[in-house]
Design a protein around this nucleic acid. Structure first.
Lengths: 226, 226
DNA sequence: TAGATTGTTAATCGATTAACAATC
DNA sequence: TAGATTGTTAATCGATTAACAATC
């Protein structure tokens, strides 16, 4: 089920639908209408139907959506059935935290290796995986069919390391380094810029209700959340 | 400088401007035009000017923007000059990684406490801070004027713990728990849903150029990145 | 002054919401 | 069948881009 032309706005929402459907499934809910789901999730029913119909008709008029079926279909749309293998590059605090985070495996991802440049770390075990030197990475990627690299290394090295990984065959980067990677167009990228996220929170905090004293600029609409 | 009505799209971009300006500053670049910056950042010059003018005129016709001045102004807009204090709730792998992450302090945030419910962890030190029991949280928040709580706890407890923290006076949540918190409207929230981010990456990976075989759906435009 | 580049308005584009006919 | 709710088209709303007059 291929689809150019699905906007990033839609793609961003899919995992959240997936999460809510998973929770309904845990509660043994069998069916749900776009209206009920919209109330739970605080979005419009129209948006839910519109979003889903980009990928096909998963519901039934007069009935709604079968929770189990829709959950599984969204999983397939997201590619969670592929068992994507990932390596973690950088065994610092964040890299180790990711390696220990079992939630990803629940979603069908397999963390299969963790690498670093610091010889002091080599051989140390994290969840049964030895921290390995970067020199072993090329062979490891080929042998294990690794698709994704999670980058948890300092920003200075990140673009070069990423370029090297591309030459090893890595197709996707989950980038935690606070920099842009400048990858070739066929390589996909998802950034997690924690410092930027925290700055946005700071902005919101500063501008929440207390804002009365300040100078009023042009806009007059509501400050939104979500 | 208060501003209702700044769209989240604009706010999302501000930290990235800030990062690029910081890098220019490190390289002792004195001035930059919206055109030059737009080329570096891969956005339109028009968008940069439009974004900045929501907050005031920081540039000068015929000259461009003074890097140091603009950097400092965006910092103020983001509230980075407030020295926001934050506590980390949950001293698991992720909580510890955040506590050790010095980048936040560079941005003017102060991690001033880390809390957990596990007695085994009490007293253990992370970057000079003892892990404290949740019972001490209320007094700690009042004493230290804490504004922000980073939530790195299991999703099951997250909404209740968040509600409790609100009653202690916490005004902002940086939420890493994979759930929605349902906070009162005056409390601000920034979610970091790592599993959702990874699922989006999975989607992109699945639909990157290899997609030829699949069924073509309606849209026909480009698949975007960024 | 002439050249450059902003600040800002107008035009375009895309995403969200509303409405309703199709259909289970 | 009647009621409910989808799938989908049309209307609205908002965000991005283009254009240009203002001005350093």
């Amino acid at each position: 089920m291929y689809d150019k032309g699905i906007s990033t706005a839609v793609i961003k929402r899919l995992p959240r639908y997936y999460r809510y459907l998973g929770e309904l499934l845990e509660k043994d809910v069998v069916r749900i209408s776009s209206k009920e789901l919209s109330e739970k999730m605080n979005v419009t029913a129209s948006q839910i139907r519109q979003d889903l119909n980009h990928f096909g008709g998963f519901g039934q008029q007069g009935y709604g959506y079968n929770v189990e079926y829709l959950y599984s279909e969204i999983g397939k749309i997201l590619g969670l059935d592929k068992g994507n293998r990932l390596v973690i590059i950088g065994a610092g605090n964040l890299g180790q935290a990711l390696a220990n985070y079992t939630d990803f495996e629940r979603r069908g991802f397999r963390v299969c290796g963790i690498f670093d440049i610091d010889p002091q770390k080599f051989g140390r075990c994290i969840r049964g995986m030895e921290i390995q030197p970067m020199e072993k990475l090329k062979a490891f990627i080929h042998k294990n069919g690794v698709d994704i690299a999670a980058l948890t290394i300092p920003r200075q090295n990140a673009p070069q390391v990423a370029a090297e990984l591309v030459s090893f065959g890595v197709k996707a980067f989950w980038n935690f380094a606070p920099t842009d990677l400048n990858l070739p167009p066929e390589v996909v990228l998802e950034n997690v810029h924690l410092a930027e996220s925290l700055m946005r929170l700071s902005y919101k905090l500063k501008n929440a209700n207390n804002g009365r004293e300040g100078i009023l600029q042009k806009g007059e609409d509501e400050l939104e959340e979500k």
